[in-house]
Structure formats: C-alpha cells, structure tokens
C-alpha cells in the first residue's frame, strides 16, 4: 500500500460541522436477493461530518473490486473504502475491521468518525 495521499486532509475542524444530508440518490438497489443473504441494501449519497459518503451496487460509480465478490461499494470523498459483508448480513470495512455495522451507511459513517478528516489511501490490490 502506498504511503502517498491524494489530497490534503480536510482538517479536523470540519468534524464540528455535523452531519448535513444534501441528497439521497434513488434508493432501492435493484439487485435480486440472493438465496442465502439479505437483499442488497439501498444506495445512499450524503454529506456526513463534512465528507461525502456514497454507497451502491459495485460498478454503479466505478467500483473496481467486484472481483472480491462484493456486490456493493462505498466511497468517502470519491475514494473507495474496502468493505466486506459478513455471513449474517452485517458489514465491516478496512477502517473498522473488527466491529460489524448493520448497514453500509453506518459503516461509512464509522469510517468518517475514525478518519477525523484524513483522506483514504486509494486501494491497492492484494499482492498475492
């Protein structure tokens, strides 16, 4: 993984701004429920603590790791957050890997809480 960031950190001051929802995209992902899992959750697009967080079906906005088997992707200020769905339908990310969240939106918000304004480092595929 590279140590280079793509932009300056936004700054912790923005964390004080609070969550402002600027828009919610057409919800209700169209993916059909799979036999052993709950349906894909709805898409979302909002500003949380000054950061834009988006979620939706992988590929819908350029997600590139559907090869990991994930049908859903999450972005923070446009950078992809590596996420994973657990067998029970909960979600984790590379930022909060040991603390499952109920929804991708909760996962994205937890990542923003942890980042305290820092930028995600772009994903680099596993070396194996």
């Amino acid at each position: 993984m590279s140590g280079i960031t793509r932009r300056q950190a936004i700054g912790a001051a923005s964390a004080a701004a609070g969550a402002v929802v600027v828009g919610v995209s057409a919800a209700h992902a169209s993916a059909a429920p799979r036999a052993t899992r709950p349906a894909e959750p709805a898409s979302f697009d909002e500003v949380y603590l000054g950061r834009r967080i988006q979620g939706g079906p992988a590929g819908g906005h350029g997600g590139h790791h559907a090869d990991h088997g994930g049908g859903y992707s999450v972005r923070v200020d446009g950078d992809e957050l590596h996420i994973m769905r657990n067998a029970d339908g909960t979600w984790i990310s590379v930022i909060n890997h040991y603390d499952p969240q109920a929804t991708p939106r909760a996962l994205a918000r937890a990542a923003v809480d942890d980042l305290q304004g820092a930028a995600l480092v772009p994903l680099v595929p596993a070396t194996r």
């Binding site: 993984m1 140590g3 960031t5 950190a9 590596h82 590379v94 930022i95 603390d99 980042l115 820092a118 930028a119 995600l120 480092v121």
Partner: peptide
Amino acid sequence: INVRVDGRDFLRRSLGGG
C-alpha cells in the same frame, strides 16, 4: 506508519474510547 489505509502516518490509539 507506512502500510496504512489513510493519510495519517502516526500511531493512533483510543484505549477504551468506544
């Protein structure tokens, strides 16, 4: 911190913080 998922390169902790 060189192998990292975000821009911060200093060690972070929040013992019992959650």
